[in-house]
Write a protein that binds this DNA or RNA. Structure first.
Length: 573
DNA sequence: GCCGTTTTCGGCCCGACTGTTTTCAGTCG
C-alpha cells in the first residue's frame, strides 16, 4: 500500500467522522495525518510502528491503524464507518457549498445516499422543505452538481503525470526493451487531463495483456492488439497504443495532438502532396514514405521547424514554425530563484531555515520567504510588528549557505477595497512584496478589477500573486479584467505571478501569454508551504512554455543581483 | 485523535460570507 492510498483511507475516515458529527479535533488528527503521509517522500509501508510514531501528528492509535492498513490492506475502523454511511455519500460531501452537517441532514431526513439521489431530491423541490434550506440553496446545489459533471474524469496535470509514470514503470518492469512514451495532453503539459495516452514503440501485442492486468485496473474499457483502454482506481482512464519502430515519430506526432494542431498539419501535408497519419508521412500517388521514424523529420518535410509539444494547440505555432520564428522556450534549468514560499511563521509546515536549506540543495541561488499578512487570520497572518521581526530572522539566514541569498518578503492581502493589509512603512522595509487576493472572490468584474488596480498603484507592491485566484476543478477564476491588469502592471513595473501550486497554475497559459504581450514581466513561484512542494517549480515552467515564454520574460531566471534592480521598488522614475 | 506538561488532562488558529433567519448555522479558507 503506497502513501497515497494510506492517505486516502485516513482522509475518508476524517470525512465520515465529520458526517457523523464526531469530535472536531479527532477529525483534524486524521486529516493532518493524511496530509503528512500523502506528502511524505519515502514509503511509510517500510517503517515499523515505532518509526511511524515519529512522524509529526501521528501517535499510538494512528500508527497502529497505518500498520493495519499496510499489513492487511484495510482498516476495521474505516470499514465500520462505511457500515454507517455508504461510500457514495463522500461524493456529496465534496460538492462545493455542501459540508458534513448538510450531508448528515440529507441522509437522515431524505435518505440521500449519492449524487443522483441528491440531484433527484433537488429537482423535485424536496431540499427546500428541510430546516435551514431554501430555494436558493437548492439551486446552488444543482449548480454545484452540474459544475462537478463538467470536470468529471479530469485530473490535475501533476496527478496524471504521476499516474502515467507509474504505469510506464510497471510496463517496463514486465516488458523490458519496449520504449514507452507519454503522449497526448500529458506530453503537451495541459493543466488538466481527461485521459492518459501512452505510446509503446516496437512492442508485441502481448504487452496489452500486461497492461490490462495492471493491479489497479478497475475496469477494462477496450482490449485490442494495437490499442487498449482501462480505467484505474481513482478514475484515471489510460489508453495504450502500439506502433512499429519505423512509425515512432509519426505515432508520437499523431497521438500527442492536439486535434486542432493535427488537423492543421494534415491540411498542410495535403497541400504539399502528402498524406499524414499515425504511421508516417506518405507521398500521394506512389505512396512512398517520406518521414515517420522521427517527429523532426515530419515537420522538416512539411517545411517547418520542430514544434515543442506544449505549443501544439493551433494558436499560431504552425505559422511561426514556417518562418522559424518559434521562441526558445524557457526550461526549468533557467530558473535561478524562487520568490514565493511560506514557513511555520504562518501556515507553512517547515521553518525558514529548512526551506532555505532545501532550496539551496535544489540548486536555487536565492529565495524569498513570503508569509501571510494579518487579514488571513486562519493562517496566523503577520501584523506589522511580527512581519518586521520575522524579516530580521529571515535576513539572518544570509551567509549560511554559500552563494545563496534569502530575501525577506511578505504575501500581503489585498483587502476588499484594494487597500493593502499592512501599512506602507512596513512594506517599505521589506525586500519583496507580493500582493494577493484571498477573500471576496465573487465581486463583479468592475469591483474586482478596480480592487486589483488600486493594489498595483501601491509603490511597494512588486508582484501580483496568483492573479485570478482560480482553483483547478474547483473554483472559477475571479472576474478580473486581465488585460487592464496586465497593462497597469507593465506601466508600474509590477510582475505577474505564475503560481506553481498544482491546483492553481495561475496565471494560466493563455493569460500569461497575454500579460507578456502587454509588456508585463512574469515570475514563476512555487508558493511552497513545505520543503516537499519546492519541486512544483516544474509545473509553472510548463505553463510558461505553453505561454510561449522565453527565459528572459521571467524575472527569476536572473541572478539575485540582476533581479533586484528589476523589482518595482528599485526601479528608477 | 495528538501533544506536552507546572506529567495523564486540557488545549488544539478563527473570521467572513451566505442563506437562512430575526439571531444563527453551515461552509470555506
Amino acid at each position: 500500500m503506497d502513501n497515497r492510498a494510506i492517505a486516502r483511507v485516513l482522509g475518508e475516515i476524517a470525512d465520515l467522522l465529520e458526517i457523523r458529527g464526531d469530535n472536531a479535533f479527532k477529525i483534524r488528527a486524521y486529516r493532518s495525518a493524511a496530509e503528512t503521509i500523502g506528502a511524505w517522500p519515502d514509503p511509510v509501508a517500510r517503517l515499523d510502528a515505532k518509526q511511524i510514531r515519529e512522524l509529526p501528528g501521528i501517535g499510538k492509535d494512528l500508527a497502529a491503524k497505518i500498520r493495519e492498513l499496510v499489513e492487511t490492506g484495510g482498516c476495521a475502523f474505516h470499514a465500520e464507518l462505511l457500515q454507517q454511511f455508504p461510500a457514495t455519500i463522500l461524493d456529496v460531501l465534496r460538492l462545493q457549498g455542501v459540508g458534513p452537517r448538510t450531508v448528515a441532514l440529507l441522509y437522515s431526513a431524505l435518505g440521500v445516499r449519492s449524487l443522483p439521489d441528491l440531484e433527484a431530491a433537488a429537482r423535485e423541490g424536496r431540499l427546500r422543505t428541510l430546516k435551514g434550506m431554501g430555494s436558493k440553496k437548492e439551486a446552488l446545489i444543482l449548480k454545484a452538481i452540474q459544475e462537478r459533471e463538467k470536470d468529471l474524469g479530469r485530473h490535475l496535470l501533476a496527478d496524471t503525470t504521476r499516474v502515467a509514470t507509474e504505469v510506464i514503470d510497471y510496463l517496463k518492469t514486465h516488458s523490458p526493451g519496449v520504449e514507452l512514451i507519454p503522449v497526448g495532453s500529458v506530453r503537451r503539459g495541459c493543466e488538466t487531463c481527461g485521459d492518459i495516452d501512452i505510446l509503446a514503440v516496437g512492442g508485441e501485442a502481448a504487452l496489452m495483456d500486461v497492461f490490462t492486468a495492471h493491479p489497479q485496473v478497475e475496469r477494462i474499457l477496450g482490449r485490442g492488439d494495437t490499442k487498449s483502454s482501462v480505467l484505474l482506481d481513482g478514475g484515471y482512464q489510460v489508453d495504450l497504443r502500439l506502433v512499429p519502430a519505423a512509425s515512432r515519430g509519426a505515432g508520437m506526432q499523431y497521438f500527442t495532438g492536439s486535434k486542432a494542431h493535427n488537423v492543421a498539419l494534415r491540411e498542410r501535408a495535403v497541400q504539399r502532396g502528402y498524406k499524414l497519419n499515425e504511421y508516417g508521412l506518405f507521398r500521394i500517388g506512389d505512396g512512398e514514405e517520406v518521414a515517420g521514424a522521427a517527429e523532426e523529420g515530419i515537420y522538416e518535410a512539411l517545411a517547418l521547424t520542430w514544434v515543442p509539444p506544449e505549443l501544439r494547440e493551433d494558436r499560431g505555432e504552425i505559422q511561426a514554425a514556417e518562418r522559424a520564428g518559434l521562441p526558445r522556450l524557457i526550461a526549468e534549468d533557467d530558473i535561478r530563484g524562487d520568490l514565493h514560499m511560506h514557513s511555520t511563521a504562518t501556515d507553512g509546515r517547515d521553518d525558514i531555515e529548512s526551506m532555505a536549506a532545501a532550496a539551496h540543495r535544489a540548486g536555487r541561488s536565492y529565495i524569498a520567504i513570503t508569509d501571510h499578512s494579518k487579514a488571513l487570520a486562519m493562517a496566523n497572518g503577520l501584523d506589522e510588528e511580527r512581519a518586521l521581526a520575522h524579516a530580521a530572522r529571515v535576513r539572518a539566514l544570509n551567509g549560511r549557505f554559500p552563494g545563496f541569498s534569502v530575501l525577506a518578503g511578505i504575501e500581503c492581502d489585498i483587502l476588499e477595497d484594494g487597500r493593502l493589509d499592512l501599512a506602507d512603512d512596513c512594506l517599505a522595509q521589506l525586500d519583496l512584496v507580493i500582493a494577493s487576493v484571498h477573500s471576496r472572490f465573487n465581486q463583479d468584474e468592475a469591483a474586482m478589477t478596480d480592487r486589483v488596480l488600486r493594489a498595483l498603484e501601491n509603490p511597494y507592491v512588486d508582484v501580483l500573486g496568483h492573479p485570478t485566484g482560480r482553483l483547478l476543478l474547483k473554483r472559477e477564476p475571479a472576474r478580473v479584467h486581465l488585460e487592464q491588469v496586465a497593462t497597469a502592471a507593465a506601466r508600474f513595473g509590477v510582475a505577474l505571478e505564475i503560481n506553481c501550486q498544482t491546483d492553481r497554475l495561475d496565471l494560466n497559459d493563455a493569460c500569461a501569454r497575454l500579460a507578456h504581450e502587454r509588456g508585463a514581466r512574469l515570475v514563476i513561484s512555487t508558493d511552497a508551504h513545505s520543503v516537499n512542494a519546492l519541486v512544483n517549480m516544474r509545473w509553472g515552467v510548463t505553463v510558461a512554455r505553453r505561454a510561449w515564454l522565453a527565459a528572459d520574460a521571467v524575472l527569476n531566471t536572473r541572478g539575485v543581483e540582476d533581479l533586484r534592480p528589476l523589482l518595482r521598488r528599485h526601479r528608477q522614475g
